[in-house]
């Protein structure tokens, strides 16, 4: 099974909230000092699902990312986990693309790579939390689309995709090639292997420009973006915490019960 996994480089979402900074003027999040960007954790889980499929059925995994030349680290992360190769899509004209621009760019690269059975990405990116690029790629390429996959099985020119729903799950049969987004619940991604790390270090990651993949300049960048941020602000902490003062944890528990009773919480 030949797979393409789209991944994004993001500021580390595990950064402590106290270190999270915003530049309100430019409406941008400032990269936290001393904490390097990471592969979007949701996409890392898509990679994990791709690797399980490769383990089960063989085939090839290509990792694709749009960003700057520095974004090659997330492609290399994928290769160190067991992917086969990857590309970085980078061009000044890509700057400030919205989800539709991003999907246009990724779709162009996917068509250039060709010969795929399955395209995967995470359910959303941990920065803007939209979760729309995967489905827009499916629309652009007229591919069958399934969201929030938990498990995938191959079945004669089709896939059996189990996906989570709010109250349970659904199983779909989907013809290939298909575009599938992967839910968080697939579980922890594997760690890079020793040989994978060496392979990734040696691998040359090609950088493709707009011209390399035949991007329509009218559909990318800030000019093509359908919306813009009017405001970006930190979420305010609306509450002020009263700490129960006590000599022992035992006493604190008792006092907490009394306090809860006092405010009518039970």
């Amino acid at each position: 099974m030949n797979m393409i996994v789209c991944v994004k480089q993001v500021p580390d979402p595990e950064v402590p909230p106290a270190k999270f900074r915003i530049d309100a003027k430019t409406k941008q999040v400032m990269p936290p000092e001393g904490i390097p960007p990471v592969i979007n954790p949701f996409d890392e889980r898509a990679l994990e699902l791709a690797l399980r499929l490769k383990d089960a059925y063989g085939g090839k995994i290509t990792v694709l990312t749009m960003g700057s030349a520095k974004s090659e680290s997330v492609v290399k992360r994928g290769i160190s986990m067991g992917a086969d190769d990857g590309f970085v899509l980078s061009d000044p004209s890509f700057q400030d693309s919205d989800s539709f621009g991003t999907a246009h760019i990724l779709a162009a690269a996917i068509q250039k790579i060709g010969n795929y059975d399955l395209i995967l990405c995470g359910r959303q990116a941990s920065d803007w939390d939209e979760g729309v690029v995967g489905s827009i790629i499916a629309e652009n390429l007229s591919l069958p689309f399934i969201a929030l996959a938990l498990a995938i099985e191959a079945a004669d020119k089709a896939l059996k995709v189990k996906r989570v729903t709010t109250d349970g799950y659904q199983v779909f049969s989907v013809p290939v090639p298909a575009m599938v987004t992967v839910c968080w619940d697939v579980g922890r991604p594997r760690l890079p292997s020793g040989s994978g790390v060496i392979m990734a270090a040696r691998k040359k990651i090609p950088v493709w420009s707009a011209a390399d993949i035949g991007v329509d300049a009218g559909q990318v960048g800030k000019g093509a973006a359908r919306k813009e941020a009017a405001e970006l602000s930190r979420r305010e902490w609306a509450r002020k915490c009263e700490i129960i003062q006590a000599e022992t944890p035992d006493e604190a528990g008792t006092k907490l019960a009394e306090k809860l009773r006092e405010v009518g919480a039970f």
């Binding site: 500021p11 979402p13 941990s126 920065d127 939390d129 941020a229 009017a230 602000s233």
Partner: peptide
């Protein structure tokens, strides 16, 4: 308005 960055921030979007 929507939460972004895992709920660390709120973005207000407006369309063209």
């Amino acid at each position: 308005s929507k939460p972004v960055y895992g709920g660390n921030a709120i973005a207000v979007w407006t369309s063209k």
